[in-house]
């Protein structure tokens, strides 16, 4: 299967007050047509910057290395025309819908603007299409919604409007950056159900960013885990949830309290996540890893095939799957 999106060796650095800072290092993963990939990690691990690199929404002065191939077209360092063409085939949904919608324009204006201005679709037809997608994402009484303003809608409803607007361009790839993090669990279940249905009905590929391993395991085909700007493990979602191979993924899985039982103490990893620019020569997780050896301090592990996926750890497979040191 040829991938719809193929990210290989993606490096990103951004200017800062003390020179250039690496943000992403050798990020590598691919998504097939119609496939969903979860991108999981803690704050600062580079999840959002990976999505922004793919969408071409990087801040000024960003330096990108490696390759991002979308359906056969190289996007890293591409021209503005190529970027525009690719952008109409991928759509973005962000965490906070209220930050990405103009509060003084009606929902109808918001949904039809791009169609009318960029694609010269007549207003009447644009509105008909907006009504259809609102219905698709389960918004009741869509005709009334078109006349309403963002402040009149709840967060869950507004996030559905954002998903509807993403669908209006009929994308092949949906980039969703924590789309349900700000929502209540019952609303999250609703929004995820809508994304899931659309994905199956329209054959959409999905890059789903979340900090919630359980959610990724529930809705994605495969999960990629990021730490300090690198992808450190990719596995089929349920496999990763049940049998994580990388010590960091193991620690992350163990640290989450359980819904079905308690332990007197949660197994914790000492220290806190570091950023890509703080990584010394070796494995980025080495300072916190219970299994670290001299090799981990000196040699940076790269992703290699292991089990059902890939993992960047010198000791993958040799690790005892017992609890990480408490």
């Amino acid at each position: 299967m040829s991938a719809l999106l193929d990210v290989r060796g993606l490096d990103l650095s951004l200017p800062s007050y003390d020179g250039e800072r690496p943000i992403l290092r050798q990020v590598t993963f691919s998504i097939g047509a119609g496939e969903s990939l979860g991108l999981v990690g803690e704050s600062g691990s580079g999840k959002s910057m990976t999505v922004r690199s793919i969408a071409g929404l990087l801040p000024r002065g960003a330096r990108v290395g490696g390759s991002i191939v979308f359906d056969g077209t190289e996007l890293a360092g591409c021209s503005a025309a190529v970027r525009r063409a690719s952008r109409s085939r991928m759509a973005l949904v962000f965490q906070d819908p209220r930050a990405h919608i103009n509060p003084v324009r009606s929902i109808g204006d918001f949904l039809t603007e791009a169609l009318r201005l960029n694609r010269k679709v007549p207003r009447r037809e644009a509105e008909a299409r907006a009504l259809r997608v609102l219905d698709d994402v389960g918004v009741s009484d869509p005709a009334r919604r078109l006349r309403q303003y963002p402040h009149e809608l709840s967060g869950g409803l507004l996030q559905r409007v954002m998903i509807a607007s993403a669908l209006l361009v009929e994308p092949e790839l949906l980039l969703a950056d924590e789309p349900t993090t700000a929502l209540d669990v019952t609303t999250q279940a609703d929004v995820m159900a809508i994304i899931d249905d659309l994905r199956r009905d329209l054959g959409l590929a999905l890059l789903f960013i979340t900090h919630d391993l359980d959610l990724a395991a529930a809705v994605c085909d495969r999960t990629a885990v990021m730490y300090a700007g690198e992808v450190i493990e990719v596995q089929p979602a349920e496999e990763l949830h049940e049998h994580p191979e990388h010590p960091y993924t193991q620690a992350l899985t163990a640290a989450r309290p359980s819904l079905t039982g308690t332990s007197p103490r949660l197994p914790v990893t000492p220290g806190r996540p570091i950023a890509a620019f703080q990584v010394a020569g070796g494995c980025p997780f080495e300072p916190r890893c219970a299994f670290a050896t001299d090799r981990c301090r000196e040699e940076r592990p790269s992703l290699h095939e292991h089990g059902h996926g890939v993992v960047a750890c010198h000791h993958a497979g040799a690790l005892d799957r017992g609890p990480v040191r408490a």
Binding site: V139, Q148, A217
Partner: peptide, 24 residues
């Protein structure tokens, strides 16, 4: 029960509520 069922886990199938969201 709804709260409990809405917590994601492997094998979880998110499902629509029949009730639609009210306006804010």
């Amino acid at each position: 029960q709804l709260l409990r069922a809405s917590v994601p886990r492997p094998g979880w199938k998110p499902r629509h509520r029949t009730r639609r969201e009210p306006t804010r």
